[in-house]
Computed example of a mutant assay.
Amino acid sequence: MTAKKKINIVLIIVVFGLWGTVAYKTVSQYFFSKELLVNKTELNDGLNLNEINKDTFNLEKVTRDPFLNRQNNTDSFVSIKYYSKIPNLKIKTNPVVLKPKVIINWPILSYHGYIRSKDKDEELILVKIDKRLYKLRKDDEIEGVTVKKVYNDSLELNFNKEKKIIRLDQSFLR
């Protein structure tokens, strides 16, 4: 046998031994517990359970505020009564008027990619707005449409305080 097989056999025996011990301790609680209870009751015959010793002490009013670290005036405490049942009160509430959402008509947009310059880090983004092709840079605005973020496959655009993400036009990849 090789060394690996010997180690595996030893480890398997150790695991079975551990699980056997756990199983024995679990099962022994249910089957052998009567003998242990008899022995415990015999040992505790001299114990008197009727005797109760009370530990009593007086609570005093706290005159120092532990959070603000200053002395409190005992006359300044006000008693507050709380009622558990609140009478039925009719409270007039103003109805909430929802403002109608203005429907914003976005122009027809399509993203056709970007052109990266060898000399500069800037990119020219090719965007078609209402069937006209524009070359834009980041944060440029044309016809109310602003380019906010540029990704390889999409653009994030703003138009009248609304955000929209458009994907790369798949027809120009062929």
Rank of each mutant, 00 (worst) to 15 (best):
K120A: 10
N152H: 09
Y30G: 06
Y82H: 09
Y82R: 08
N94E: 10
V27K: 04
L59H: 15
E35F: 09
L109K: 01
I12E: 10
G144I: 06
F67R: 14
I104M: 00
A3H: 11
K4Q: 13
K90W: 05
R70G: 00
K54E: 09
L109R: 02
T146P: 04
P107S: 03
P87T: 04
R132N: 12
I13D: 05
E156V: 11
F32N: 14
K90H: 09
D119Y: 05
S79D: 14
K99E: 11
K81I: 06
K135I: 03
D130W: 00
Y30M: 02
P107H: 01
E42A: 14
R167T: 05
L36N: 15
D65W: 00
K101P: 00
P87H: 03
K5P: 00
I9S: 13
T93C: 07
N160L: 08
Y30W: 08
F159K: 09
N158P: 00
F32R: 13
K118W: 03
L49N: 07
K120I: 10
L157G: 04
S171Q: 06
A3G: 04
K99P: 01
I108T: 13
E122L: 09
F159Y: 15
V38K: 15
N72D: 09
S84F: 08
L168H: 04
K99G: 02
L98T: 05
R174L: 09
T26C: 05
V27Y: 09
T146W: 04
N88V: 07
T63L: 14
V15Q: 14
K61Q: 13
S110E: 06
K92R: 07
M1F: 07
V14Y: 12
I91A: 06
A23K: 07
K54M: 06
N160S: 07
L18C: 15
I12N: 13
I52W: 03
V102S: 07
L36T: 15
K92T: 07
L36D: 14
V150Y: 01
D45R: 12
N73W: 02
V10I: 15
K149D: 13
R64W: 11
I91L: 08
P100K: 10
L155H: 06
